[in-house]
Design a protein around this nucleic acid. Structure first.
Lengths: 238, 238
DNA sequence: ACGTGTCAATCAATCGCTTGATTGACCCAG
DNA sequence: CTGGGTCAATCAAGCGATTGATTGACACGT
């Protein structure tokens, strides 16, 4: 792959990710993509072969991209699995914050997440890749953390706990429109922090720990990374 | 409306609900619907005016239909809001069971739920109705129950707790395909029971109660309704 | 330095097909 | 014979796919 692996190709992938992500496969025509990418209609056939192939490649690229929620699992990639509960709780808090921070904001890669959600809701040939490269790593990390927090639980129970934690977070993205309609909409930057606080507390209590333990974990997590705490949030306005 | 308010009309609505639910609006053609309903192509225009109008009417009917998850909120419709925590916990357990029992199985009205989920993910003109008639009642009931369980919490916190409970359950439906791929698939009837147990425990702990309290609530809920308990499940094979 | 051939890349134009919508004829109960 | 309901047939528009021509960059033997 050269430095400029075909400008048009990338523009097409960007447009495809954005359009497929926000509208879904069937609602987007190749003409929409070509127009959005300022490319010719035939360039899709030339670079990818078909609309379907372009979609699959856009999904794959969306998952193997740096700086996304898909990277949250890397939190533990070069760190040994913690041995005591307090340590695991801190990592869990950091994971939750990292996941929410990339999941919630209506940011540049909204479409990327939506692609993955759509693929989960209505599986296609791309689902296997999405599960293996995006979902399973996060699930595995979460299970490993919960295992330390709940040594007595069997694998099935650990999996359910992990899904309860992930489910809470995904819920806010999947049903964003609904939730914002249920109450007055609020700014995303505020919501990341308040939801981090809520999900971490709710989940650690759900795993059997008390509020003081959760509080301490969040405090330590804030020290160990760039998490805004309730105190440090007071003055900022980003 | 007569007893047989046009057979074709109903067949079209059934077909539309099923097809739109499983594939989404854009992936379904009016010819698919007409074929599925054994009706003529023009009957869609005659009875509804357009594809879009048929979709909107199908969504509306799906929400105001008896025996669906949309009825879970009616659990409290003719019951006063409970005054003590134990009572509220029992109702919460019953709500969770009822919701999961109608949400999880790949049953007749899969499509109905999928319609609502889709509408939540990608809002259209029908979203307002879906929120007001399906989602808000459930959310309100849940908030009222949680308020009794957590008297010290403010409205925003109650709303987040309610979303955490709903989110866990919705997660298993929205990402059913993904979750079944993560582990070996398991029968739905088993999963309703084991997930009921898990979600109720996790949520009541998340709200600040201990395991014994949750256990008691589930036991009482089983007595008060038709919920299968771990013990009563042992011999059945439905 | 020049013509020649090769290659990736882009382009306008068009293919055959499907889409949602619409027509006018037809049927039959009231 | 009137009107609610169904029907096959058809419409323009849009779809994804495909074509053959064209471009500019690069490498070649002479």
């Amino acid at each position: 792959m050269p430095d400029t692996p075909c400008q048009t190709r990338i523009a097409l992938l960007d447009a495809a990710e954005s359009l497929f992500g926000s509208r879904g496969f069937d609602a987007v025509g190749i003409r929409d993509i070509a127009r959005e990418a300022d490319a010719n209609l035939a360039s899709i056939k030339y670079h990818f072969g078909s609309k379907r192939a372009l979609y699959l490649e856009a999904v794959n690229r969306a998952m193997t991209r740096p700086g996304r929620a898909s990277e949250a699992w890397q939190l533990l990639e070069h760190t040994p699995v913690p041995s005591d509960a307090a340590e695991a709780a801190v990592l869990l808090a950091r994971f939750i914050h990292r996941f929410l921070a990339e999941l919630l904001p209506t940011s540049s890669d909204d479409a990327c997440i939506m692609l993955i959600i759509r693929e989960g809701m209505r599986p296609s040939e791309a689902l296997d890749g999405v599960v293996d490269r995006y979902i399973r790593p996060n699930q595995t990390l979460l299970v490993n953390l919960v295992r330390v927090l709940k040594p007595q639980a069997d694998d099935a129970e650990l999996a359910r706990d992990a899904q309860s934690i992930l489910g809470q977070m995904m819920h806010y993205r999947v049903f964003r429109a609904v939730i914002e309609k249920l109450r007055g909409a609020r700014s995303d930057s505020q919501r990341v922090h308040e939801l981090f606080d809520h999900v971490t507390r709710f989940s650690l209590r759900g795993l059997g720990y008390d509020d003081a333990f959760a509080e301490q974990a969040m405090k330590d997590a804030a020290k160990a990374s760039d998490i805004d705490t309730a105190a440090s949030m007071e003055g900022s306005s980003t």
